[in-house]
Amino acid sequence: MRIAMASDHAGFGLKEELRRLLAAGGHDIVDFGTGDESACDLVDYAYPAALAVGRQEVDRAILVDGVGFGSAMIANRILGVDAVVCQDPFCATLARSHSDSNVLCLGAKVIGSGIAVAVVDAWMTSAFLAEEKYARRVEKGRAVAERHLRPLDEM
């Protein structure tokens, strides 16, 4: 799977750990930065990574910042992106199986490495349950986005 990754300075260390783990698992990683722990603006890295998801240049993205909320707020402003913040494997499983999320946002100040690895594993290995009720709910949410967000080809 082709996965975009990005972080700010607070999430850099965890992003690097997860990047190495996913690459070792055979995934193609597109790293949008940041490249170190120097103070930086999250949007400079999370936005291009999320845009790659919206343009279908990658299959999914994992964004890491201090708490995860900033990444999710940035990513969810792009049509075609369904970003979630997860802090445990149970929520990560449901975020994929019930909501078909394509961007996972993690907070390096909130969860440690061990939990983050378990969250990523759960999110990466859970499939969307395309049963009628879940498909209907996801489609309703996407219809809301289509009413309010511009298509990327209009940018």
Rank of each mutant, 00 (worst) to 15 (best):
M1S: 15
R2K: 15
I3C: 12
M5E: 06
D8G: 03
F12N: 03
G13T: 13
G13D: 10
L14W: 05
K15Q: 14
L18N: 10
R20N: 13
R20K: 15
L21Q: 10
L22W: 14
L22F: 12
G25D: 14
H27N: 15
D28A: 13
I29Q: 08
I29R: 05
V30M: 12
D31H: 10
G33Y: 00
G33T: 00
T34M: 07
E37A: 13
S38N: 09
C40M: 05
D41G: 05
D41V: 15
L42Q: 11
V43L: 08
D44G: 02
D44E: 13
D44A: 10
Y45V: 11
L51K: 14
A52D: 10
G54E: 05
E57W: 06
E57S: 10
E57F: 03
V58Y: 04
V58S: 07
V58N: 08
V58C: 10
A61F: 06
L63W: 04
V64N: 05
G68R: 01
G68C: 08
F69Q: 07
F69P: 01
S71D: 09
S71M: 08
S71E: 10
M73V: 13
I74A: 12
N76C: 07
N76G: 09
R77A: 14
I78W: 10
I78G: 06
I78F: 07
L79Q: 12
V81T: 11
A83Y: 04
A83M: 05
V85N: 00
Q87P: 01
P89S: 04
P89K: 01
P89W: 00
F90N: 00
F90L: 05
C91H: 01
A92F: 03
T93M: 06
A95M: 09
A95R: 01
A95G: 13
R96N: 08
S97P: 04
H98M: 07
S101M: 00
S101T: 09
N102C: 00
V103S: 04
V103Y: 04
L106G: 06
L106C: 02
A108M: 03
A108V: 05
A108I: 06
A108C: 07
K109D: 11
S113L: 10
I115F: 00
I115T: 11
A116N: 00
A118N: 10
V119M: 04
V120H: 01
V120K: 00
D121I: 02
D121V: 04
A122W: 00
S126F: 03
A127N: 08
L129H: 10
A130L: 01
A130P: 04
A130N: 11
E131G: 08
Y134E: 01
R137Q: 10
R137S: 13
E139K: 12
K140T: 13
K140V: 12
G141C: 02
V144C: 07
A145F: 02
R147I: 02
H148P: 03
H148G: 08
L149V: 09
L149E: 09
R150W: 07
P151L: 08
P151E: 14
P151Y: 11
P151C: 08
L152S: 06
E154P: 06
M155P: 01
